[in-house]
């Protein structure tokens, strides 16, 4: 049995590599085998919502389409609540970084106008960093805070403009 183990281990290693490559090939969120730059494609034209309609809605949660409208019209400032290393690696284009854990101490918040609209996001539907940051901002007196629960996951899948900080 011991003599067979290296062969079995090799089969497992090779098999998992093949499975990973095959799945990645068909996975819409798959990664490039080589280093890749940020996506810059723009789409989602023909949306009927106007920025004013979106900003005046009673709910504070935005869909991908609504977020994209605000992005295109530059009607809101986008804030990335994730750790700085994730922001540097990839973020919604023109978004600023306010890490939710240190938001109370972040001088970037002091520079923002309290009555301007802000879209806060983090990784995706399963993260709560955007909500925590929104709570902090609300306590600090900000009045128009919108959550984009889809976060980077939806934005990336839609191939909307992203950027990275070198």
């Amino acid at each position: 049995m011991i003599k067979k183990s290296p062969i079995q281990a090799a089969v497992i290693l090779f098999g998992s590599l093949i499975a990973g490559l095959a799945f990645n090939n068909f996975n819409p969120g798959g990664v490039s085998l080589l280093a890749s730059g940020p996506s810059t494609s723009i789409s989602a034209s023909g949306n009927t919502l106007t920025p004013h309609e979106i900003l005046s809605k009673t709910g504070r949660t935005l869909s991908l389409a609504e977020t994209q409208v605000l992005f295109e019209s530059k009607a809101a400032v986008f804030i990335d609540a994730r750790p700085p290393s994730f922001y540097q690696a990839e973020h919604i284009k023109s978004a600023i970084s306010v890490y939710y854990k240190t938001a109370g101490l972040n001088p970037a918040l002091d520079k923002l106008k309290k009555n301007d609209p802000y879209v806060v996001y983090c990784k995706g539907p399963n993260c709560n960093q955007a909500q925590l940051l929104a709570d902090t901002m609300h306590k600090a007196g900000f009045t128009k805070i919108f959550l984009f629960p889809g976060g980077m996951q939806e934005w990336r899948l839609a191939q909307y403009p992203m950027d990275r900080t070198p």
């Binding site: 497992i12 290693l13 998992s16 590599l17 990973g20 490559l21 085998l33 080589l34």
Partner: peptide
């Protein structure tokens, strides 16, 4: 990227 493709399947 290669590690991100391979490692999860190896774990699986």
């Amino acid at each position: 990227n290669i590690a991100a493709i391979w490692l999860p399947w190896l774990e699986m």
